[in-house]
Each structure stands twice: as C-alpha cells, then as structure tokens.
Design a protein around this nucleic acid. Structure first.
Lengths: 226, 226
DNA sequence: GTGGTCATGTGATACATATCACAAATATCG
DNA sequence: CGATATTTGTGATATGTATCACATGACCAC
C-alpha cells in the first residue's frame, strides 16, 4: 500500500521526481503518512526529531512561543518539505509546526533522506533550489517587518493569502485576529482597527473571517509604501 | 598559481574538502580570485550574475535599496559562500553585496558549481547544511525585528558583533550609526540615543566607533526582554 | 434555553520611536 | 592648513501603536 503512496508523491514533488527506482523502494520502506486535522501539532520545538516532513496536502504554520508569546514565523503550503533546517543541523526542532488546514504529511527517516542527497545529485540540487528560494522569501519577510508599519504589514498578509495560498481575492481567513497579529508582529487590537479601516475605505470587504479584496491595486500600494 | 589557490581553499571550506581531485582541477580552471577594499561592491541587485561567490577572507553586508532607503539584511563573514540564493534560482541578484572590511572573494562559475552538486553528494550535503543554518538564523532575525523594541535590537547588534564577528568584547564598529539603524530597522537618532544610554548606564563604553561591552550579562538581558 | 468561554470591536490613555531642527565633532581633500 | 562635507548628539514635537478597560457577539456544553 505504501509503495503506491510514494509513487504518487512523485507527481507532486520536484525532488521526488529525481529519485531513481531503488531509492523509491527505500523511501517506501522508511516513510509513513499521517493525516492531521486543523490545529494539530506536527512537531514541537525543542523535541528531538529523526524525520524530515514532506507535506503532501494542506497548510501549516511554523511558530515558536519561546518568549511566552506565540510568534508565527512562516506558513508552508503543500506540496513542499516542511522546514528541513531544524532537522538537519542537529536533531532538535527549533520551531513548532501546527496545521491550520487539513493536512497530509509524510515522515521520512532522516538517514534515508541524507542517503538520497549523498547518492543523487539531482535530488540534492532540487533541495538546494528550494532552500535558496526560502532564503529569498525570508529576506523579504525581514524587510517587511523591519520597515513597514502596521497597515502595510496587514496589507501584505492579505495579499499573501490571496496570491500565495488561495489564488483568489475571496477567501476565508484561517487565522484569528490574534494570530494575524502574532504573525505580523502587531497587536490583536491594531489588526482589528486596520481591517476595519480597510473595510470602511472599501479596500476590502470583511465579515468575520470572510475576506474579499475589493481594491487589490490600492492594497498593493499600501503594502509598498509601508 | 591558481592551482595552489584552490588547494588552499580546501583548508577553509567544509564544502571544498569534499571535492575530489578532478573536481579540484575543474575549480582551478573556473575560479578567479578578487581582492576588495572596504566599501567596494561585490555585486549589485538586479544585475545578472553567472558566478557563485565564496568568501575566503573578510566581511560583507547583504543589502538592498529597493525602497529608496538602504536596508541591510545580513552580514556574512568569511569563510563562507555569499548568498547563493540569488544566483541559483534565476541568474539575477536579488540583493547587493558590499564589503565592510578588506575581503578576498573567489568567483566560481555557476555551471561548475552546479556540476559539483550533481556529481558530489558530500559537497551537496555540506551546502544544504549551510543553507539550513542560514534559514534558522533568518528566523531569528525575523523574531528580533518583529518582537523586540529598539534597545533590544541595539543590544542584539552589539552582542552579534562581539560574539559572531570579532570574538571580543572590545571592537571597532564597522558601521556608522546610520548603517546600524538601517540594519536593525530604527532611525539614526535612536541608535545614538540608545548607545548613549548604554554608555551612561556603564553597560558599554563608547568612543566613536570604539565599543567595549562592560556588562555582557545585562546586555543579554536587554536583548532577551526586547 | 442558560451560563460560560472565547473572539472581536472600540474608545481612552500611555509610551516608544520617528521626525525635524540645529549644534558640535570628525573626516576628507585640495 | 583651512574649507567643506559627513557623521554624530540632543532637544522638542508629532505620530503610530501597545495597552487597558469594557462591551458586544459567536459558539459550545449541558
């Protein structure tokens, strides 16, 4: 049964495509698949992990509550590897991963994963490309946080959901106002106020978690100007 | 002459160690070494690049002036690869790199670099480890920027120089107050004021660009509390 | 239904930091 | 060496956002 599983993975993952036949057998033997409901924890920071997690389906937040307050660092949408770094450097997770939509995750033994990298240059190259792109995104996040003020960050977040996650100007916000604030580094109340302003100015329509972007161009300008 | 060069590189770079003999010859043929004075530009954002840059010696800032104002994203200290991402994904540099201390940089043809990854799993694995560590650092930078207020960020910056760059509590700041502000996302004036406060409180001694950390523990606390 | 919990909106206030304006110190260069 | 530009410090003010306090609304258990 698992054999078919990993074959299916091929269709979704650039990296998996590069795996050659006997590596796929290895994968099948050292890979287990788990279904998560929204809000479930995939792994916790400071826990030891010996797996690389590959997301087949769903949406996950990487976060930390090191400083008593929860801070959301990034969203990761399937299909994609989930935050390799913590697993590779040492075996301790530096951050927590919690699902925010129903998610299907594949746990791959880290030794098998490492073996693939060592044996298969194509696979390694795909991983390196993915990490490189992550790094550029991280830089952009840093820019946003360091430079923009609250309304620019909220505009950013809305455009991110519309463009990167849902591919639609109409979507259901998977976050509470609190979580949105934790993500963008602003307070719950400010998020409320800013969304309210956007609503009044007909830039968006909001009804609870239901969001419609009415004036994408203006929102983009607000995001740019900060 | 270049042959000896690349052999020397081996001593400094984990990745290079993993290169096998005929790959070293390749490297020697497709590698050129350049000396930079402080303040010189290694590459500029939006420029096309067909090289991976490896830093043999020196200190470099990765920055962008996309938004009319200069923003410093990261410092990279030799020995290390300099910001692979922009080069690998596409061939356009997303950010600029400017030296802040005398620097010796090695330009490696990107096709040769890619060939090494494809052919040599050990090399690829080292690159992946390095990128992974970068990612964790990026996360921490995001946390700092989103969560800490100005004095915490300045404390952070001072500890960073002392610990990561100079390995000494006494050092010469390679940045102007303006640059420090550009890096931590605060204004030049605030940097001045905060350094002044630290000085008055005997947490540091400052005399122009000359900095001495007098109370590392307290500085650490300020950094933690934000 | 009722009571309880949690998420949300909104006003008043406090606080941190940017901005502006200018003076002083320092570096740069002919 | 002097003239000019650049960097730095510091006060006054403006602005943005956190925080506090409380009211409202949604959801859930019983």
């Amino acid at each position: 049964m698992q054999k078919t599983l990993c074959q299916n993975c091929i269709l979704q993952s650039d990296s998996a495509i590069k795996l050659i036949k006997n590596q796929l057998n290895d994968l099948t033997d050292h890979c287990s698949q788990v279904e998560f409901k929204p809000g479930e924890i995939i792994f916790k920071e400071n826990a030891i992990s010996t797996n690389v997690v590959y997301l087949k389906r769903g949406l996950v937040k990487i976060h930390t509550d090191n400083f008593s307050k929860d801070r959301i660092l990034r969203l990761t949408k399937a299909p994609s590897y989930l935050c390799l770094p913590g697993v590779l450097g040492d075996s301790i997770n530096r951050f927590s991963a919690t699902t925010i939509e129903p998610t299907l995750a594949c746990f791959i033994d880290i030794h098998v994963f490492k073996k693939f990298i060592l044996e298969n240059g194509d696979f390694a190259y795909q991983i390196i490309l993915a990490l490189s792109q992550n790094e550029i995104k991280s830089f952009q996040v840093s820019l946003n946080l360091a430079q923009k003020q609250a309304n620019g960050r909220v505009a950013d977040a809305l455009l991110y959901f519309a463009r990167e996650i849902y591919n639609s100007l109409v979507f259901l916000l998977p976050f509470s106002r609190q979580e949105l604030g934790d993500w963008m580094g602003i307070s719950r109340e400010s998020v409320s106020r800013i969304l309210g302003e956007f609503h009044s100015a007909h830039i968006i329509y909001q009804n609870g978690k239901e969001i419609t972007i009415l004036n994408e161009e203006l929102l983009e300008q607000i995001s740019q100007k900060g």
